[in-house]
């Protein structure tokens, strides 16, 4: 479980996050939604140690705040950043191998488990990542994050640039992974409708503050939130 309490982040004079608190339970998807500039990406960057923050972020009983990014990763927090971080000049398998840097699991075993999870990647294992479609790249980014067998998966805009059908497939995969691997998933999404459909809980950020939080079904049903974030007239 990830517990965020009183989290604040400032970039110079700009306060990107103010006193943000929420919990992301184990084996569940918690989605973070909000408009551009709400602080969603900063929130994920704070958890993985890429952004300096104040407050508290606990993974079970361990305080993550103040830890170096690589140490947070070694504790089992996998972060798929916006843009996916896939190396286009490397093959699919070479990209996957990069994900095993912090893992103690033998390489062959790690690769086999990801190929079982994502059969499309095995078919394209020798192809350069540059030749993959947007959906395949997203699969590769997730597989690379999961290959080290993390307990927490942070996903930043996984549907970015994907066609609606591919987005739906990606969301289904995330839901399946969360259930089968008992992962704590924090899903940041612009596409709030898709995210709320698979998430158990939701946190709505507005200008760096928590505007609403609760079970995703309730958030999705709130007429005001529907109007602001889902583009649905009540």
């Amino acid at each position: 479980m990830i517990r965020v309490a009183g989290l604040s982040v400032t970039y110079g004079a700009v306060r990107a996050l103010r006193d943000v608190s929420f919990e992301a339970p184990t084996g569940q998807i918690t989605t973070v939604i909000g408009a551009n500039g709400a602080g969603k990406t900063t929130l994920l960057r704070s958890i993985s140690g890429l952004a300096r923050a104040e407050g508290s972020i606990r993974l079970d009983e361990r305080e993550l705040l103040g830890m170096a990014t690589e140490d947070v990763a070694r504790l089992g927090v996998a972060h798929v950043p916006e843009g996916r971080g896939v190396i286009a000049e490397l093959t699919v398998e070479e990209n996957l191998r990069l994900g095993t840097l912090a893992s103690k699991v033998p390489l062959a075993e790690s690769l086999a488990s990801q190929y079982a999870q994502f059969p499309a990647l095995e078919r394209r294992r020798r192809n350069y990542a540059a030749t993959l479609s947007g959906g395949e790249r997203q699969m590769l980014a997730m597989a690379r994050a999961l290959i080290a067998r993390p307990s927490v998966l942070l996903l930043d805009e996984p549907s970015l640039g994907l066609a609606p059908q591919v987005t739906a497939e990606t969301m289904r995969t995330i839901a399946q992974l969360c259930a089968s691997e008992s992962l704590t998933v924090i899903l940041v999404e612009q596409n709030a409708k898709s995210a709320l459909r698979i998430a158990h809980d939701a946190v709505v950020l507005h200008l760096g503050q928590v505007a609403a939080a609760g079970p995703s079904r309730e958030i999705a049903a709130d007429p005001e939130l529907r109007r602001y974030y889902l583009g649905v007239a009540s």
Partner: peptide, 24 residues
């Protein structure tokens, strides 16, 4: 080796390297 792969990641994408547990 693992070191070689880490080095390549450091060269190509520092953030991805850190997120993969590499001390830059």
């Amino acid at each position: 080796s693992r070191v070689g792969r880490a080095m390549r990641l450091v060269r190509d994408n520092e953030v991805a390297a850190e997120l993969s547990g590499v001390n830059l």
